[in-house]
């Protein structure tokens, strides 16, 4: 417990698109997309094999060990 009221949390290790990455604790999906510079309206996010609906990006908090896939449409036949 810290006098200022802030609680320091350790960064968490997650997997994003197959790569290990350390992110801030308590980050939501929306915040992660913002940090990565990814346009939320052009991507779809899958968390631990579940497709996340866009409305839940702001309320889904990431935790240690999460497997995140961030995908978008590209050219294809």
């Amino acid at each position: 417990m810290v006098r200022s009221g802030a609680v320091f949390l350790l960064p968490v290790l997650v997997h994003i698109n197959g790569e290990k990455k350390e992110i801030g604790a308590g980050l939501t999906v929306a915040q992660l997309l913002g940090e990565l510079g990814v346009r939320p309206g052009r991507v779809v996010v899958e968390l631990n094999r579940d497709v996340l609906s866009r409305e839940t990006h702001g309320s889904t908090t990431l935790k240690e060990g999460d497997q995140i896939e961030i995908v978008h449409f590209v050219g294809g036949g």
Binding site: I16, N17, G18, E19, L36, G37, V38, R39, R42, V43, V44, E69, I70, V71, H72, F73, V74, G75, G76, G77
Partner: peptide, 15 residues
Amino acid sequence: VAIRRVNITDPNKEN
């Protein structure tokens, strides 16, 4: 269109 991972180390501004 195809669905592929975003390159998170260099997310293209254009889609």
